[in-house]
Simulated assay, not measured.
Amino acid sequence: MTIAAPTAETRWRCTLCGNLTRFDVTRSSKVIEFLHFDLGGEAKVEETEVLTETLESVRCRWCNAVDQVELVARPGAEEPPAAEGS
């Protein structure tokens, strides 16, 4: 099951317990980072460009449910569009 990331109009909700606030997210990303090293050799990331990012799973922190998270509208926002193939 693939889930989309929340947007300005949507947020996640666990379908089993109703949790809206606590989730463990596993994701893979490919990034380009600009590192700046000081004279002592300590690195600091000054810029990050995300090339690709994939959400692999979202687990509810309250009830430990895996793949039971859905996108719902944020308060005051319009309903999210229905997923294709639904």
Score class of each variant (00 low, 15 high):
Glu49Tyr: 08
Phe37Gln: 11
Pro81Lys: 15
Trp62Arg: 11
Asn64Thr: 13
Glu42Phe: 08
Ile3His: 13
Arg22Ile: 00
Ile3Met: 10
Gly40Gln: 07
Glu56Pro: 00
Thr10Asp: 02
Val25Gly: 03
Glu79Gly: 08
Met1Ser: 11
Gln68Met: 12
Glu47Val: 11
Met1Ile: 01
Ala83Lys: 07
Ile32Asn: 08
Cys14Asp: 03
Ala83Met: 03
Thr52Cys: 05
Thr21Trp: 00
Gln68His: 14
Cys60Gln: 06
Glu84Pro: 02
Pro80Ala: 15
Leu55Ala: 03
Arg59Glu: 12
Glu42Gly: 04
His36Phe: 09
Ser57Trp: 01
Glu42Thr: 12
Val50His: 05
Ala73Lys: 15
Glu49Ala: 13
Glu84Ser: 13
Glu78Ser: 13
Glu53Gly: 05
Glu9Lys: 13
Glu46Thr: 13
Arg74Tyr: 00
Cys14Ile: 05
Ser29Arg: 15
Val66Gln: 08
Glu49Phe: 13
Leu35Ile: 11
Trp62Pro: 00
Glu78Ile: 07
Ser29Tyr: 04
Asp67Ile: 04
Lys30Ser: 15
Ser86His: 12
Thr26Ile: 06
Val25Phe: 01
Ala8His: 10
Arg59Asp: 04
Ala4Gln: 08
Lys44Phe: 04
Gly85Pro: 04
Pro80Thr: 14
Asn19Gln: 03
Arg22Tyr: 08
Ser28Gln: 05
Thr48Pro: 00
Thr2Leu: 14
Ala82Met: 10
Ala83His: 04
Gly85Thr: 05
Arg27Ala: 12
Cys63Gly: 01
Gly41Asp: 02
Ala82Asp: 04
Pro80Tyr: 15
Gln68Leu: 10
Glu53Leu: 13
Glu79Tyr: 04
Thr54Asn: 12
Leu39Asp: 15
Asn19Gly: 05
Thr26Glu: 09
Glu70Thr: 12
Pro6Cys: 10
Lys30Gly: 00
Pro75His: 09
Ala8Pro: 00
Val72Trp: 10
Thr2Met: 09
Arg61Gly: 12
Phe34Arg: 14
Ser29Leu: 09
His36Trp: 05
Leu20Glu: 13
Arg11Ile: 05
Thr26Gln: 11
Leu71Gly: 01
Leu71Asn: 14
Pro75Ala: 08
Gly76Cys: 10
Gly76Ala: 10
Arg11Gln: 15
Phe23Ile: 05
Val31Lys: 12
Arg59Lys: 14
Arg11Cys: 12
Phe37Gly: 02
Met1Tyr: 02
Met1Pro: 01
Ser28Cys: 02
Arg13Ala: 12
Thr21Met: 04
Gln68Trp: 06
Met1Arg: 14
Val50Arg: 14
Gly85Asp: 05
Leu71Ser: 07
Ser29His: 07
Lys44Leu: 06
Ile32Tyr: 09
Cys17Gly: 01
Glu79Asp: 07
Val25Gln: 06
Glu46Cys: 03
Ser57Asp: 04
Ile32Glu: 09
Thr15Trp: 00
Ala65His: 05
Ile32Thr: 09
Cys17Asp: 03
Ser28Tyr: 05
Ala77Cys: 12
His36Asp: 10
Ala83Gly: 07
Ala82Cys: 01
Asp67Met: 09
His36Tyr: 06
Ala82Trp: 02
Cys60Leu: 07
Met1Phe: 01
Phe34Cys: 03
Arg61Met: 13
Glu46Leu: 12
Val72Leu: 11
Arg61Val: 01
Cys60Gly: 06
Arg74Ile: 02
Gly76Trp: 06
Arg22Val: 01
Trp62Asn: 14
Asn64Lys: 11
Arg61Glu: 10
Ala77Pro: 01
Glu78Pro: 09
Leu16Ser: 13
His36Leu: 08
Trp12Ser: 00
Leu51Phe: 02
Asn19Cys: 09
Val58Tyr: 11
